[in-house]
Simulated assay, not measured.
Amino acid sequence: MIGQAPVAALRQMTEQDIAAVVAVERATFPIDAWTEGMLRGELADQPRTRHYLVAEVDGRIVGYAGLAVAADQADVQTIAVYAEHRRAGIGSQLLTALLAEATRRGATKIFLEVRADNPPAQTMYTTFGFEAYGVRRAYYDDGTDAITMMRELDG
């Protein structure tokens, strides 16, 4: 979060959060939402290679984010925030926390894919220093392209 007071409380995601996170996932990505099983699989690798956070406002989960790290490479797996809580800085808060964790784990580069039809997310990533370097054609279930982005991390 760049120069902004936190608007959500962040904490590590647990198995008890899965139902609430699935609801955020389905609301945010209705066509290609991750399933409960996929989320359980991600959590099974936490903390070894994964780091998942939830964002709470007034005790309610309103967003979440995930990171994968292997050796010196990190990948933003996902960031999702309920529509009514977007543009409040929660996505930035989550991304800031993922970048810090990737750096803490020794990653020197971090990658992500973002929907080509999601300019607000692309803008957020660009603001955080990510640069587009390619396109994955028809990457998403509905045929939408993904823009691949990368950022160098300070060690």
Score class of each variant (00 low, 15 high):
Ala80Lys: 03
Ile2Asp: 13
Ala8Arg: 10
Tyr82His: 13
Glu101Met: 10
Val76Asn: 06
Val22Asp: 06
Ala65Thr: 01
Glu84His: 14
Asp32Ser: 11
Leu99Gly: 10
Arg40Cys: 12
Pro6Glu: 12
Arg137Met: 01
Gly129Gln: 00
Glu152Gln: 03
Gly3Lys: 08
Met1Ser: 09
Gly155Ser: 04
Ala116Glu: 14
Asp72Arg: 03
Asp72Pro: 03
Leu94Ile: 02
Tyr64Val: 08
Met13Ala: 14
Ala8Val: 01
Glu25Ser: 09
Ala83Val: 08
Glu113Asp: 12
Thr148Phe: 00
Ala71Val: 13
Val69Met: 11
Asp32Pro: 02
Thr28Lys: 05
Thr148Ser: 04
Leu39Lys: 05
Thr49Val: 07
Ile31Thr: 15
Val69Thr: 15
Ala70Ile: 15
Ile90His: 00
Asp58Val: 09
Arg104His: 14
Met150Asp: 08
Glu56Gln: 11
Phe130Tyr: 07
Thr28Arg: 01
Gly91Ser: 11
Val57Lys: 03
Gln77Ile: 14
Ala88Lys: 14
Asp32Ala: 11
Arg11Trp: 03
Glu15Thr: 14
Glu56Ser: 07
Gly63Leu: 04
Ala20Glu: 13
Ala138His: 12
Ala138Gly: 01
Thr35Glu: 06
Tyr140Pro: 00
Glu152Asn: 13
Gly41Lys: 06
Gln4Ile: 03
Thr123Gln: 15
Val7Thr: 14
Met149Asp: 04
Arg104Gln: 13
Ala100Phe: 07
Ile18Tyr: 04
Asp58Ala: 15
Glu131Cys: 00
Asp142Thr: 09
Ile18His: 02
Glu84Ala: 15
Thr49His: 08
Tyr82Ala: 08
Thr35Asp: 11
Leu67His: 00
Met124Gly: 04
Ile61Asn: 00
Gln46Ala: 09
Leu112Asn: 05
Thr108Leu: 12
Met124Tyr: 11
Ala132Pro: 05
Glu42Gly: 00
Asp17Met: 01
Ile147His: 12
Phe111Gln: 06
Glu101Tyr: 00
Asp117Asn: 15
Thr78Glu: 13
Arg86Asp: 06
Ala83Pro: 13
Val81Phe: 11
Arg50Phe: 07
Leu94Ala: 01
Gln77Ser: 12
Val69Leu: 06
Ala138Phe: 01
Thr14Pro: 02
Ile61Ala: 09
Leu39Thr: 02
Ala23Thr: 03
